[in-house]
């Protein structure tokens, strides 16, 4: 994969949803370049289109019009399997509701992306333990999600996103389900990891107060980047 200055480039991207029989235009011709190796933040109110934008960058949705280049690839031409493989290799996700697999322990949740990538067992174990160490949960590795606090669950989710060394990590309002103190801790953790590993983070939030050290800030309102 050729190393470019931008991890994602969007040109005249629109996205229209159908809600029952009503057409809703979530994104209205967005053009943006998301820089590599930065802690990027997309700020916007609820319904402003930030989640839709993250979904398009994360290759889990396709634009209605316009083009998107992710990690130097025009993903519009990918088949569904190619898109899955691309996500498995290059993109990590952190969700607002953690989205951990309830039947997996913390260790297994972190290991899951490596299983999808068919990483050899020895390397898998090494990387899972190292990543759990990074988020401070190595002692909780055998616990299941229902045995962990909200903050711990989100740390597991962060570890799951980071374990495969993705080119970028997308975090869609990762603190929305956490109290203020835990949310701040989570953001600090992500910022620390980013500063240390130079992983590209694209972080969305509707709360401006939570964002202190954003290197690149994208403001979105009514489907348009300001």
């Amino acid at each position: 994969m050729p190393e470019t200055e931008f991890v994602a480039r969007l040109k005249d991207v629109t996205k229209t949803h159908m809600l029952d029989k009503v057409e809703i235009q979530a994104l209205k011709g967005i053009t943006a370049d998301i820089p590599r190796n930065k802690f990027n933040v997309i700020i916007g109110q609820s319904g402003s289109g930030k989640s839709t934008l993250l979904n398009l960058i994360g290759c889990i949705d396709t634009p209605t019009t316009g083009s998107i280049e992710v990690c130097g690839k025009d993903v519009a031409s990918f088949s569904d399997d190619e898109m899955s493989d691309f996500r498995a290799r290059h993109i990590g996700f952190i969700f607002q509701t953690f989205n951990l697999m309830p039947v997996f322990s913390a260790y297994e949740n972190v290991e899951y992306p490596l299983l999808i990538n068919k990483t050899p067992a020895g390397e898998r174990r090494e990387r899972v333990l190292a990543t759990l160490e990074k988020v401070g949960l190595v002692d909780h590795r055998d616990k299941f999600p229902n045995e962990l606090s909200g903050g711990q669950r989100q740390r597991v989710a962060i570890a799951r996103a980071l374990v495969k060394n993705p080119e970028m990590v997308l975090a869609d309002e990762p603190t929305a389900n956490l109290d203020h103190r835990t949310g701040t801790e989570i953001i600090e953790l992500m910022q620390n990891i980013q500063a240390k590993d130079k992983t590209t983070f694209i972080f969305s939030s509707h709360d401006k107060n939570l964002i202190t050290n954003a290197e690149d800030l994208f403001m979105i309102m009514d489907g348009v980047i300001l």
Binding site: I60, D80, S84, R87, F93, F95, T97, Y112, P113, N117
Partner: peptide, 16 residues
């Protein structure tokens, strides 16, 4: 459903 979406987002193929 949510788990299926998560697994797919993490890169699991439809066949998987």
């Amino acid at each position: 459903i949510s788990e299926i979406g998560t697994a797919r987002a993490l890169g699991l193929r439809r066949s998987a």
